[in-house]
Design a protein around this nucleic acid. Structure first.
Lengths: 344, 344
DNA sequence: CCGTATTGATAATTCGCATTATCAGCGGCT
DNA sequence: AGCCGCTGATAATGCGAATTATCAATACGG
């Protein structure tokens, strides 16, 4: 397919310059040493031949010869570019693009990964993964097998978001949701809240567990009641009544929005609300939602920096690298977390 | 770099199954013919060896051997994933992602292209372009040299947006802004507007020229005065007064917004406003802006379909393909184009 | 019983580039 | 003359998969 009649190879350059293909390669890669010596005159002759032509190195051949490619893979466990997911992925992708640009790398999106048993799989018969020097993984939920295999094969990769679903340590860059959760609980205590209701969907993700662990750690001030909720939040008012909670925290901003809808204007005014997640762009009844601000572009930049580090380090020397990095986010004090009983 | 100790090759599979590498390749590609015959027993043996292992074909080697890669390049003349440009690129990228997914292709973003003389260049010493089977080009303004060279090298590519900056015909998928412009002018005439002021930035792009050509074609009903404006729109009220225009059309929605700002509430109420471009998400003083709706996801889908067609057709047989395609958008009748002198 | 298909499979080659090993030519030294 | 060492360059090889040419073994036909 796609015949390339105009393709210029090193051999062609060599013919023009009257040297061997080896010499052309040496000149292109600035090789020089005890065994390889090329006088400037020859160098110049070869260079000129290259300038005259439209020579471009074939990346496939370079790769096959064992060189780096300057290609970074990007794998998302959900579609990355839909309008809905742009909210979440947008800043990450933007950060990745910028970092890649400054590293001089191209980005290979594995959009072709087939869906097997309801989830996208990174590994399949025809994966182009190996074309990349390394890979960034994105997504709320990742596949443990994929991760295991990447580790086992010493393939350089970095997950965005904390991971703990595997035996082997997985390189990641994430947000310290535990610390943020503690801070926000402390703030709630200061504001006089003694009973808080935490609603979540019982997701089996590391960050979900981190939040729960932090709540655990916080002890009894304030006392937090955990409640798993489904799509139907109808039972929420009853739950609030039973627990005597003066504040409702939820796993993410969307869940807060759903809760606010169920509680109605009056109810939403009566209790404080907060999300233990990014709240940028979310407002509840005209008020800025209290929650976290997470530096997503920074995460992306850090992830690519780590990836680059892994790529340029031999597998057996990666021991010294800090491969699990948590960045500190900040608590966004909106207007939905107010003093207990206080009018806003 | 990046030693791949766990890398399984066809040779390894061959060793396990007790056959030659050739046979493995034949089985994998389902080759069969007068010269190549492999009994089912052997086939099965090889298949099982592959199943047992973690064999994945090396894409670089396949590519070098002259096969298709299922990789489509994406080149944007501006950064594609910034929050600002998401407005424009988002729907296109989304469409591209979905089309690629259904075609089973991965997407290679050429984020590494260096900026030379103020513009990004597709071709450079280390371009990974050849790794892709074909390429989609995005951007308001493209580089004529890039296009010429792509054509000259018979490299399959498709530009998004109409192109006319080259001698050779460039494959593209775009919007028929001419037709839309005519329709909107007609509508203005129906509403009683006899004099329209068209403000633009004198951009040297095909679509800009299309709009001007359509205005030209429309003749004298309504009479359109053309005005090139810079960043400063201060002279706009005077222009309106001099020309007696009852409606102001602008090149794009942003320009309309700027104009509305200059005219102020009173002025914006007095004249009708419209953009000869996509107006989704743009509102002027609480009213939906009149302009066009362009099916951007559809453009992307069509572009990838065309690209796929070019890829799978030998260069000398591409004659029969309709390589320049204009899609019809639709006029979005907002509330900023009203009957002449009519209250809204 | 000898030539000739047919079957099943493999050795050899190619793709473009990087690298290693090798070599021809020359000057200096003993 | 014979040996050494240096310079400048090239032949040979490998990377992994696809393809082409080739071959050994068996079956067949007369």
């Amino acid at each position: 397919m796609t015949a390339k009649p105009g393709k210029v190879t090193q051999r062609e350059i060599a013919r023009i310059a009257g040297v061997s293909q080896t010499t052309v390669s040496m000149v292109l890669n600035d090789r020089d040493g005890s065994n390889i010596r090329i006088p400037d005159a020859t160098r110049e002759r070869v260079r000129r031949a290259i300038e005259q032509s439209t020579y471009v190195a074939d990346p496939a051949a370079r790769r096959l010869a064992g060189l780096d490619n300057k290609i970074l893979g990007v794998f998302t466990y959900e579609s990355a570019l839909t309008p809905e997911s742009m909210d979440f992925y947008g800043p990450l992708l933007n950060g990745i693009e910028r970092a890649a640009e400054s590293l001089g790398c191209d980005l290979l999106f594995f959009t072709s990964s087939p869906v097997e048993e309801g989830r996208r799989r990174l590994f399949h018969r025809n994966t182009r993964l190996r074309l990349a020097d390394g890979c960034v993984l994105l997504g709320q939920q990742m596949d443990g097998e994929d991760l295991e295999r990447l580790v086992a094969e010493d393939f350089p990769f970095v997950a965005v978001g904390r991971r703990d679903e595997t035996e082997a340590p997985v390189p990641y860059v994430g947000i310290d949701y535990g610390a943020l959760t503690e801070t926000l609980l402390g703030r709630a205590a200061e504001l006089g809240h003694e009973r808080v209701l935490y609603i979540h969907r019982n997701r089996n993700s590391p960050t979900a567990r981190d939040r729960l662990a932090a709540i655990e750690r916080a002890g009894h001030s304030p006392a937090v009641t955990l409640a798993v909720v489904g799509d139907d939040l109808a039972g929420l008012p009853r739950l609030i009544g039973e627990t005597g909670a003066t504040a409702v925290f939820a796993e993410d901003a969307f869940l807060v929005e759903d809760a606010a809808l169920v509680l109605g204007d009056a109810g939403a005014d009566a209790v404080s609300l907060a999300a233990l997640a990014e709240v940028r762009g979310h407002r509840i009844g005209g008020r800025n939602l209290t929650g976290f601000h997470t530096p997503r572009q920074q995460i992306a930049a850090e992830a690519l920096a780590l990836l680059q580090q892994l790529i340029s380090t031999a597998p057996d020397e990666r021991g010294g690298i800090e491969i699990q990095r948590l960045l500190q986010g900040e608590v966004a004090f909106g207007e939905t977390l107010t003093a207990r009983g206080g009018a806003r």
